[in-house]
């Protein structure tokens, strides 16, 4: 069980208010992802939930009971740190067993649980090694192993994949998602990578400067971003924002069009421009188009086979049904 509820939580470091009053509920079994730019308070929020930092005002409830003043060890949460924080002088087996030893569990039970965790995480062959003798991905799995043996009410991950290379990151992403399917335990996952957020989350919490900009499922955020910040943050490449007369045609201060929602043609279209930089990914190609008569450079995503080159004239047509409209305050117009 792991329903986590923050009520009017604030956090100040000295005079600096890092988290202004914030309300948030994470349901039992949910995979919640906190995303936001660097320094927006994601780690701080996670550490407040873990109990590693004291909250300044407000209340944290875990499973309906007030946990505001409960020490970290008693909250029943497990955390996986960005640096893994493995104990370097202990073997993998001892690392994973550490929380159980601290809980004074019987040795036979400890062995059983460690073996079980190791087989889930493919660590059985490495149990007698030290962390220093493991690769980054293996260390990451040991850190997760140390978290799962405790059977916590919820897992907290702070950017656990940021030290891994791209290929490994994709692999570990799947493993963590699978683990969540298997354990069905609440997980809170911090990242600044919106791809991780989109692929893993049941619920995404977008933060900026300690303020929650929007909470919702990945597709909700993609389809109906509540404001310009969320619209720009979710989706890759970034949404095109167009102001001025073109936006006025739609009765908006700003309109947003995603690169994947623009059709390209060599003969006709709503806007016409010149191809600047093009990024070929094989499956897709991203064209950065300028001189369209709009103030902004427009990014479009086309099929990988589309063969425009630098300097070519290109015609663009946005799909009318997926144009996002925003008012002067940057808020979405329904």
């Amino acid at each position: 069980m792991g329903r986590i509820q923050l009520k009017q939580v604030t956090k100040k470091f000295g005079d600096v208010e890092v988290i202004p009053p914030l309300d948030l509920t994470i349901e039992d079994g949910e995979f919640a992802v906190f995303v936001g730019p660097s320094g927006c308070g994601k780690s701080t929020l996670l550490r407040l939930i873990a109990g590693l930092e004291d909250i300044t005002t407000g209340q944290i409830e875990i499973d309906g009971t007030d946990a505001t003043n409960v020490p970290p060890a008693k909250r029943g949460l497990a955390m996986v740190f960005q640096s893994y924080a493995l104990y370097p002088h202990m073997s993998v087996r001892k690392n994973i067993a550490f929380p159980l030893r601290m809980a004074k569990m019987e040795q036979a039970e400890i062995d059983k649980r460690v073996e079980a965790a190791a087989s889930v995480l493919n660590l059985t062959d490495y149990l007698d090694r030290r962390p220093g003798q493991l690769s980054g991905g293996q260390r990451q799995r040991v850190a997760i192993g140390r978290a799962i043996v405790r059977e916590p009410a919820a897992f907290l991950f702070d950017e656990p994949l940021s030290n891994l290379d791209a290929a490994l990151r994709v692999g570990m992403r799947m493993e963590i998602s699978e683990l969540h399917e298997k354990l069905a335990t609440t997980m809170i996952y911090v990242t600044h990578d919106q791809v991780e957020a989109m692929t893993m989350a049941d619920k995404i919490v977008v933060l900026q400067a300690g303020v929650i900009e929007q909470v919702g499922s990945p597709l909700e955020l993609y389809r109906a971003p509540r404001n310009l910040f969320v619209a720009g943050f979710i989706g890759s490449p970034k949404m095109n924002f167009i102001e001025g007369p073109e936006a006025a045609k739609h009765d908006a201060h700003t309109i947003g069009v995603r690169p994947e929602h623009i059709a390209v043609s060599d003969s006709e279209g709503l806007w016409s421009g010149v191809v600047g930089v093009s990024e070929h990914l094989g499956s897709d190609t991203f064209f950065h188009v300028h001189d369209t008569g709009l103030a902004e450079t427009i990014t479009v995503r086309a099929d990988g086979e589309v063969g425009f080159r630098h300097g070519d004239r290109i015609h663009l047509t946005p799909r009318a049904d997926v144009i996002h409209r925003f008012d002067a305050q940057g808020l979405r117009i329904a």
Binding site: L52, P72, A85, Y87, A103
Partner: peptide
């Protein structure tokens, strides 16, 4: 690394055990 101490704290090690198992080694 202070994260090691925090990890031990979350793993349920009281201060004396943190000293014995983490700081001393």
């Amino acid at each position: 690394d202070s994260e090691q101490l925090e990890a031990a704290e979350m793993d349920g090690a009281p201060p004396l055990k943190r000293f014995y198992h983490i700081i001393l080694p």
